[in-house]
Design a protein around this nucleic acid. Structure first.
Lengths: 335, 335
DNA sequence: GCGCGCTACTAGCGCGCTCTAGTTCGAGTA
DNA sequence: TACTCGAACTAGAGCGCGCTAGTAGCGCGC
């Protein structure tokens, strides 16, 4: 920068002004300085810039690698952040890299706010993070933590799915839950409520699971083993999310159970996996783009108006009926 | 930092030493300082640190959101980078965010090296980037660009797949290519060579495509339309990658074509999608972990020994036979 | 008693930039 | 002419660290 200033015959301050596109330099000088900078190959050092101005205008996003729904969200985060003049830094949690670590990385890179996609961390961790910086949690709601929330009305989504199944004649509807996964608790609760509302509380059954394909596969195996042991298969399964539904479908189809003839399956997310299944997965759509926009806006607004209280956005999900749900099989099911 | 120093009754320099895990502080002081820092919530500012020491020890990774294989790679990049003492920053290219933009973001955050996962950019762009900084390209080889390459021996992979198909009796084997996608050119070439080697050059057919599910679906539709127009379906398809294979499977299955009874399909990547298909996708495995490790190591070694010439790692892929390939159908195929 | 080497610690400059509080100068105004 | 004013520009402090060159204190051998 000093080189540029010297070579252009101006002060460093003026170079700074020009590179920040600020008023206070004549058009002529501006062009000259930019030309010189280009010759030298000068690019402002964002580290120094960041240090000097105290603000990074950077949002950190923590996500779980492999969660397809997260990539949908990220796609929406970039443009909205750019629109508001913010940079985005991504940090992935993987098997060997905890969420805490991923967040730590973001923070030490001076992200002003952190957007957590489907965080799996302790409420206390979230709350502390929320006090230390501006934080937004997407998909997971943690009641008393000091963070913004963006999630969908799980209850409504599950209700739509359940109504759809009941309307098709299903009674033995099982729910594979998502364990401690984001939204799981609400979905579980809504499933139980729906069963009750339809007078099916006696048949309600929640099988513990996770938001992974593996979990779907396992549950599929479990159900098949039970069937072989004489227990009736359910006629419909409400999976914890799409990935779980995919795993289940795989296990069942492999064993000769035909979907939706023998059994109906509903997923959750409408991650872009869903339309991939040969017959298309019936699922509950969460509008990733809208959720992403809300998350970014929440973060930025709290950043620019520091005293603002955290808010909560609850978006309405929507059942998308595709090929994995159908009328209940006629017979009482295989022996 | 000054606060920590004061509160712990030491100098800032000592705090610095302790946070850098350097020798020169007693165990006792070390613990006291760390305790105080924790209380205050102090965390070293990486911008300032970076500015002061001139090195960021940060690797930038550009990837394409939605490319499942990339998330497999990222999973491998983190631990290897950490092992070598480097931080990782992720920047995604999405539909509305070009690779150039994603890379620019990394550079302006002072990444010392950039690892590009399956870059789709112009050779000239890559070369220029490689001259400006240390760059590694994974999956895509660009002959004369000044960057390291890590990719798999596409030729070997394709050859294994083709041998497998021919052994099963297939003759009408079609290849959906990946357009300008990483590895596509090599795979295309290897496909043609394999057809020739098996004396099938007359039947060789490359259908232009992309590395997306949509492309697979489209090709499926195309083949079905051709069949309805009287042309024979191929008996086997070598897809450009797993996503394309998935799309193809979806389109075919939906139309009543049974895989592998009526038609065999081979993917490429063994991204973690592959084992999800009800019958499991036969595919060519690229070892993501190993590729990730190589990429990180290449970047770091060039960083630490600046005059080093860029290198190239070619890893052997391996055919994984699952459920989408089978013996050629007996008849000449449906009318 | 002296120098020696060692560990534990400190003073203070400088990294490349931004920003505040200026200065300079020429045109416009009373 | 004397003044004001705004546009164009500058000096220099300071952002939060790392690092070099030191000092203080202590046990050691001779």
């Amino acid at each position: 920068m000093a080189d540029v200033a010297e070579k252009a015959g101006v002060s460093r301050a003026l170079v700074s002004i020009i590179f920040r596109n600020q008023a206070g330099a004549s058009q002529e000088t501006r062009e000259r300085v930019l030309r010189v900078a280009d010759e030298i190959g000068y690019r402002p050092d964002s580290a120094a810039r960041l240090l000097a101005r105290g603000r990074s205008r950077t949002l950190g996003v923590m996500f779980t690698v492999q969660q397809t729904f997260h990539t949908d969200l990220i796609t929406g985060i970039y443009p909205e952040a750019e629109r508001l003049g913010y940079d985005v830094l991504l940090s992935g949690a993987t098997h060997g890299r905890s969420e805490a670590k991923a967040v730590e990385a973001l923070l030490s890179h001076r992200c002003e706010a952190v957007i957590l996609l489907g965080p799996d961390a302790e409420p206390a961790f979230l709350d502390e993070l929320g006090r230390r910086t501006v934080a937004v949690s997407v998909s997971r709601r943690v009641p008393r933590a000091r963070v913004d929330f963006v999630h969908s009305a799980e209850g409504k989504g599950v209700r739509q799915a359940m109504d759809h199944l009941v309307e098709l004649g299903h009674r033995r509807i099982v729910h594979i839950d998502g364990g401690r996964g984001p939204g799981s608790a609400e979905r579980r609760r809504a499933y139980r409520a729906a069963m009750r509302r339809h007078g099916l509380q006696a048949q309600a059954r929640v099988i513990p699971g996770h938001h992974t394909e593996e979990s779907g596969i396992e549950t599929g195996r479990l159900l098949l083993a039970e069937r072989d042991g004489g227990r009736l298969l359910p006629t419909a399964v409400l999976a914890g999310n799409d990935r779980c539904a995919m795993g289940l479908l795989m296990a069942l189809t492999r064993a000769g159970v035909e979907v939706p003839r023998d059994l109906s399956v509903v997923g959750y997310d409408d991650s872009h996996l869903s339309h991939l299944m040969p017959i298309g997965l019936t699922t509950v759509r969460q509008d990733a783009l809208l959720m992403a926009e809300h998350a970014v806006r929440f973060a930025v607004e709290r950043l620019e108006e520091r005293e603002r209280e955290p808010r909560e956005a609850v978006l309405d999900p929507k059942l998308v009926v595709r090929g994995t749900t159908g009328p209940v099989p006629e017979g009482p099911g295989p022996a």
